[in-house]
Design a protein around this nucleic acid. Structure first.
Length: 426
RNA sequence: GGAGAGUUGGCCGAGUGGCUUAAGGCGCACGCUUGGAAAGCGUGUAUACUAGAAAUGGUAUCAAGGGUUCGAAUCCCUUACUCUCCGCCA
């Protein structure tokens, strides 16, 4: 959520930002609208405060009069306060309405894209920021997609998942399960070396947390909801981990705050059909190691670069060809100011699979979280929050299986062998 | 799931309707004192919104929300959380 004062003071920048996000001209009116609501909010607040100050003053006087035994004079004043109260009731109703309206409107305004975000509407307009690997691996005709490989080597079983739960809940077994666990440990160890504190958070969160990171109210349908206890299954570790700092004022010295955590992630999102959602390409439950950072506003873009380096390191150690995209205005998430997506190339499917998304939210999340820091003068400011996947397992696994298949079996990259304790899936 | 006791500032803790502008202590910051330090003394020490160029004001906040009252940390209701005991349980 943007701050109203920011919108007021940077109206042109906000409108330009919305244009990069392909807002239609008539929808840009939201900016003027929210500013107008703010005017009403402020004038109602001033009026109400003045009236409250008046009744506070009179009430004190009544107390004094009672002490002096001047009951009749006090009764006159009592009536005055009673009159003020009806006025105050109206004013505070007006104020609440304006506040609610402003909140509703503000929730509809996305984050302002960073100046480097390219214009564009579709995925195809994303800017290719970097490609790693000299050429894309070629597979011969017999190369199998990962769902075939899984059958051949008994690595995971979608049908059993259906039997136990439903579509999109994979069951990993044997070397498939071990590979999964190896990847989690590998990613966590790498994050540890890079200075991230490891967290094991709750996997269900309350409404306030879901609101804090922006899953509610706009993405309600994407989360599984345990209605009896009103808890949500987390769609990513970002939610519980970032919410550790909800309603907090940290000290400037605490920066950088670097956290990592492995959790399963649960996503209800209605999938489409066909090959691109087959196997592990899109599932309701997958594992992910997330990295989260809370940073000083001056340092957040350095932090973003650092996070990109970290994710690159992971993919290079896994020897997976990848590319990095800078998302265009049309593809950029609602809450993000700048996002880089990582895609690995799946040779057998002959397509790129998104495995990581690294974003700087600037103050968009921290405003809702009320996550602030005190500077050296004791003034508080909103911190910047960032997060990224490092990495999402299901698709990494898919690419590993496909790209490393040989006539003898599936080779495990060197960096992972210490974790799997096998070199080949046969 | 049942019964009881709680929730006050950065922390501890007093406070049963107006004398609370939340006592007192600890911590922290600054100053005085000192050769230097400690002790001592003094001053200051929350958040949000709001008015103002600023200095400085106003309002709200004693877990959260609602109510009673001219006036609520204090009385009433609802909810959340914490602790103790019982039940269930890996």
């Amino acid at each position: 959520m943007l701050q109203i004062n920011f919108i007021k003071e940077n109206k042109g920048q906000v409108i330009n930002g919305l244009k990069i996000r392909n807002f239609a001209d008539e929808d840009l009116a939201i900016v003027e609208k929210v500013i107008a609501i703010d005017e009403i909010r402020r004038s109602s607040q001033t009026e109400l405060d003045n009236s409250l100050a008046e009744s506070n003053r009179i009430s004190k006087e009544i107390g004094n009069l009672f002490k002096q035994g001047k009951k009749e004079e006090a009764d006159v004043l009592k009536n005055q306060v009673t009159e003020l109260k009806t006025l105050q009731k109206n004013l505070s109703q007006k104020l609440n309405e304006a506040q609610d309206q402003m909140e509703t409107e503000l929730l509809n305004i996305p984050n302002i894209p960073h100046s480097s975000v390219p214009a564009g509407k579709l995925e195809t307009d994303n800017e290719v920021y970097k490609v790693w690997g000299n050429e894309l691996p070629e597979m011969d005709q017999e190369a199998l997609p990962h769902w075939e490989l899984a059958k051949k080597y008994d690595l995971f079983d979608m049908e059993l998942g259906v039997k136990i739960t439903g579509a999109g809940f994979p069951l990993y077994r044997g070397k498939g399960a071990k590979l999964q666990r190896a990847l989690i440990n590998f990613f966590l160890d790498e994050a540890d070396v890079a200075g991230y504190e490891e967290i094991i958070p709750p996997h269900l969160v309350n409404e306030a947390s879901a609101r804090g990171t922006g899953q509610l109210p706009d993405k309600e349908g994407q989360m599984y909801h345990a209605t009896k206890d009103d808890l949500y299954l987390i769609p990513t570790a970002e939610v519980p981990i970032t919410n550790m700092y909800r309603d907090m004022i940290v000290s400037e010295k605490d920066f950088p705050i670097k956290l990592t955590g492995y959790t399963p992630c649960f996503r209800r999102e209605a999938g489409s059909y066909g090959a691109h959602v087959r196997g592990l390409n899109r599932v309701h439950q997958f594992d992910k190691v997330e990295i989260v950072r809370i940073e000083h506003p001056d340092k957040s873009y350095d932090a973003l670069k650092d996070m990109i380096k970290h994710v690159e390191g992971l993919l290079e150690k896994l020897e997976l060809p990848y590319r990095i995209l800078r998302l265009c205005g049309g593809d950029l998430g609602f809450t993000s100011a700048l996002t880089f997506d990582f895609e690995v190339y799946s040779a057998a499917q002959k397509r790129w699979l998104e495995v990581s998304s690294v974003s700087n939210f600037e103050t968009f999340q921290t405003n809702r979280l009320k996550l602030r820091f005190k500077d050296e003068n004791g003034k508080s400011h909103l911190a910047h929050s960032l997060n990224g996947s490092a990495l999402a397992l299901a698709r990494i696994m898919a690419a590993l299986l496909e790209n490393n298949q040989t006539a003898e079996g599936i080779k495990i990259p060197k960096a992972l062998q210490a974790y799997t304790r096998f070199e080949m899936i046969k």
